[in-house]
């Protein structure tokens, strides 16, 4: 089974990378861009059934994959709708 973890900076936490990317997009003529947030995409291969895997990966996020002081995370199991 594959779990897909998305880690992003919390809302309200300054994201200078996102701001720089937004500036770059605007300078390329994408004037409609209102904002960009840059995050991380982590794929975890693991055993176990769906519910158990979700619980374990959530635990992994809390302990290592995300820093709860500055980051939010979401977990999606492959095969589930995005």
């Amino acid at each position: 089974m594959k779990a897909i973890v998305t880690v992003t900076l919390k809302r309200g936490v300054l994201d200078p990378q996102g701001q720089a990317v937004a500036g770059g997009l605007k300078s390329l003529g994408f004037d409609e861009v209102r904002g960009v947030r840059v995050g991380k995409h982590i794929e975890v291969e693991l055993g176990g059934d769906g519910a158990q895997a979700r619980e374990r990966v959530t635990e992994m996020c809390k302990k290592l994959l995300a820093n709860p002081v500055i980051e939010d995370f979401s977990v999606r199991l492959e095969g589930e709708g995005a």
Binding site: V13, P16, Q17, N67, V69, I70
Partner: peptide, 17 residues
Amino acid sequence: LTESGLLPGALMRNKHL
């Protein structure tokens, strides 16, 4: 120290990258 919880807060990317 911040990652291990011995000190509070976090250290993030420098403002000007």
